[in-house]
């Protein structure tokens, strides 16, 4: 089993080291993201509200994907405690936020995952779970997850970087494609991704290499055709997401000599229209330890929300957070390239 950067004691496990590469790249001077945003009159970039409460439930995962920005894996032990979940629930109970997005790692590996879902649902919130699919097959105790998701009308978002085995397994590990197909069939069997059931199953494509995603619409059509033809699988939408040049993907870019070219691709594809709709503007990201971030990527770089606002669940202040200044660094180019990228896919036409 491949190990995490942290366990391997790779210097890239250190967020300061990553930021140093991104901000002061020794081999090539890249145009500043902040200057680009200033050039289109949008600096400081401000949040426009908090519509999505994204909770990273921990870094533990049954997979070790090569591009993972969390550096997640079976060897990561950081998981959210029930006390911290209770702080989330206190915030949610006292706010108009309607959407709770659960991610990880594999959020289902958190021992309090089901309890947390039930409590959030009791507050009347819509829940999204970023399910890696293989977790459903990983152990008998997870085989009923499709039924559990259905019971709570959870929106399931799952990564499938290709409708072919070779590309999927290259990125996510041997055997992942086969298990993912089985898991998708199990989700379809209870109604997920099937018309008129109201059970939403969205898929996520991200490139298995040093390149940007192609057209989301064209990919979605192709996925729909191929998955139905070969495996009788249906789904709702496909989100095309750009890989962020951080953590394990940064390691891949550096070790394969692709870093400078990839950054130039991102910068060359800078799309001002995507800046307006970047996800950090309507999302707050919560770390496993309760700290607050503008997005899951900033979270992995230890870039907390601006100190001018509350930085932890314990002193959550919605009024200060909903128009906060977003912390911007060079990796932010990943969300503004081409059609843009977010946890919900492309953000610009």
């Amino acid at each position: 089993m491949i190990k995490s950067l942290k366990v391997l004691q790779n210097p890239l496990a250190n967020s300061s080291y990553q930021l140093d590469i991104l901000e002061h790249n020794p081999t090539h001077k890249h145009a500043s993201f902040k200057e680009k945003v200033a050039g289109i009159g949008m600096l400081p970039l401000l949040a426009v509200g908090v519509e999505i409460f994204q909770v990273n439930m921990g870094k533990m995962c049954n997979q070790v994907c090569k591009h993972c920005h969390v550096d997640a894996g079976p060897d990561r032990k950081e998981v959210m405690t029930r006390d911290t979940m209770q702080l989330c629930l206190n915030v949610l109970a006292n706010s108009p936020i309607k959407i709770v997005d659960l991610t990880g790692g594999a959020p289902e590996l958190n021992p309090d995952f089901r309890w947390f879902v039930e409590q959030i649902k009791a507050l009347g919130k819509h829940i999204i779970v970023r399910c890696n699919l293989t977790i459903i097959l990983a152990n008998k105790r997870f085989h009923d997850l499709p039924e559990f998701f259905k019971l709570h009308r959870i929106e399931v978002v799952s990564s499938l970087p290709s409708f072919t085995q070779d590309r999927t397994d290259k990125q996510r590990g041997d055997g992942v494609f086969e298990d993912s197909i089985k898991a998708l069939q199990m989700l379809n069997a209870v109604g997920y991704g099937i018309a008129d059931t109201g059970l939403t199953l969205n898929l996520v494509y991200n490139p298995a290499g040093a390149f940007l995603p192609p057209s989301q619409d064209a990919l979605e059509k192709e996925y729909r055709f191929e998955l139905m033809k070969k495996y009788n699988i249906s789904f709702n939408k496909l989100f095309a997401i750009t890989n962020m040049p951080i953590s394990r993907y940064l390691d891949y870019l550096l070790t394969t000599g692709n870093y400078d070219k990839y950054m130039e691709k991102l910068i060359g594809a800078f799309n001002p229209a995507a800046v307006k709709n970047v996800m950090c503007r309507n999302t707050i990201s919560v770390g496993w330890d309760g700290y607050l971030y503008d997005c899951d990527f900033n979270q992995m770089l230890d870039l907390k929300v601006t100190p001018a606002t509350s930085q932890h669940l314990a002193d959550f202040d919605l009024s200060a957070l909903q128009n906060r200044e977003i912390i911007l660094k060079q990796h932010c180019y990943g969300c503004t390239a081409g059609a843009g990228s977010s946890c919900g896919g492309a953000v610009a036409d």
């Binding site: 072919t164 490139p207 290499g209 390149f211 995603p213 192609p214 064209a218 990919l219 192709e222």
Partner: peptide, 10 residues
């Protein structure tokens, strides 16, 4: 080569 691979050809 890049474009065709990026668009999903094996």
């Amino acid at each position: 080569s890049s474009d065709a691979y990026e668009k999903g050809f094996s």
